[in-house]
Every structure is written in structure tokens, then in C-alpha cells.
Amino acid sequence: QEPLTASMLTSAPPQEQKQMLGKWLLPLIQAMHPALAGKITGMLLEIDNSELLHMLECPQSLWSKVDEAVAMLQAHQA
């Protein structure tokens, strides 16, 4: 997977930025939650790009958000 950097991201238009972040997030989430990855990625894309960029550099914060998203999704589907 090619690395995504803050400068690459901020040089793209806003909608494109979410697309770039989604393409980066999806395979990571698929590794842990194959069936829910598309929806979890969709939920995480509602987070501010600046925070998503932080998560890009800090997997611990990424997985913490993924756990939150999974819990919300399961509660919603229950």
C-alpha cells in the first residue's frame, strides 16, 4: 500500500481527501473486520481529516476508533 501523507492529502479537493483516506483505511479494517469493513470505513470518514491523519500515524488511536465504530454498528443492527 502506498503511503498517504498530510501534504498529499491537503493538496487534494475535500471530497477527494475522503476518498484517499477511505482507500487507505479500508484494507487495514478489512484485515480485522472483513464483513463490516466498508461500513466501518464509512463511519470513520465522518471524523475530521486532521484526526484521521493523526490516526494514520498512530495505529492505537485507529483501532480504538474502529472498536467504537464496531460497537455502534452492532448496537444499531441489534
Partner: peptide, 22 residues
């Protein structure tokens, strides 16, 4: 909008529209 389709699902290659259509 309807909550039935929440959350929107991300597909690579499909422009992301987020929650704006819900």
C-alpha cells in the same frame, strides 16, 4: 433521512458522499 441505510458504506472507486444523502 432514513436510518436504515446508516452508516454509508465506503467503496473504493465510488466518490465518497458521506452522510449528505441520508
Amino acid at each position: 433521512g432514513s436510518s436504515i441505510n446508516w452508516p454509508p458504506e465506503f467503496h473504493p472507486g465510488v466518490p465518497w458522499k458521506g452522510l449528505q444523502n441520508i
